[in-house]
Amino acid sequence: MLEVRGLHKVYDSHGRRVEAIGELTFTVDDGRFACVVGPSGCGKTTLLRCIAGLLPPTGGEVWVQGSQVTGPPSGLAVVFQEYGRSLFPWLRVRDNVELPLRAAGLPRARRRELATEALAAVGLSDAHRAYPWQLSGGMQQRVAIARAVAYQPQVLLMDEPFAAVDAQTRADLEDLIRSVWRRLGVTLLFVTHDIDEAVYLGERVIVLSAAPTRIREDLAIDLPVERDQLATRSDPRFTDLRAHIYAQIQKTRHPAPQEELS
């Protein structure tokens, strides 16, 4: 389980004070899939870094699997926004996937097995001998996902993982994430600025306001568990939900909407 209680974060450096997170409180139960959506600069990355124990909050607390986060918790994996930079360019794909397992002291045979499985799950069985820089952006993102999968986390955090890949790859990766989530039974917090993506992926969408960030709305996504790029996206319920969230986000950006000619 993942709990965020009264989280507050202020960046204060070089005389510039930025209130990145006003106050956030929410819980994601075991094995659930929650998406966090909000405009760029509203503190999504800041939120993930606080949950991952990479950044101390200014106020409030974060609990992962029953213990308070003071540093990177065990059993938690992160897929970073800058996925290309998060892969070790001097390690081959397989070694990139195996590194966290090696650090955890797993025996060699077990590491091999987990890495092979994870790479197969993301459709990269053939690429294990390649270096990350020999792969396309979408394939690099798959490697980063495979590394998280092989780590067998209880909680998985993903920060706008598909922002920089082309539309087709993105659709494939979205379906990949759904299948990985259902297979692993992992608690997943997926951050994005893309409303369609949030509605398509999640069981629940947490809509953030612009800075100082609060929760604008916490919305259950009552779409069928089996999702399909064509059928789901043309489902009237899907369109309703995305229109609703879109309106919410527009309101956060323009608190007092004015008549506009266009």
Partner: peptide
Amino acid sequence: VLADTCRSYRVRGLTRLRQ
């Protein structure tokens, strides 16, 4: 980003130094 990756995957000590 690599340093953060190591931190969150708990790659530490000698492994971190070498890798």
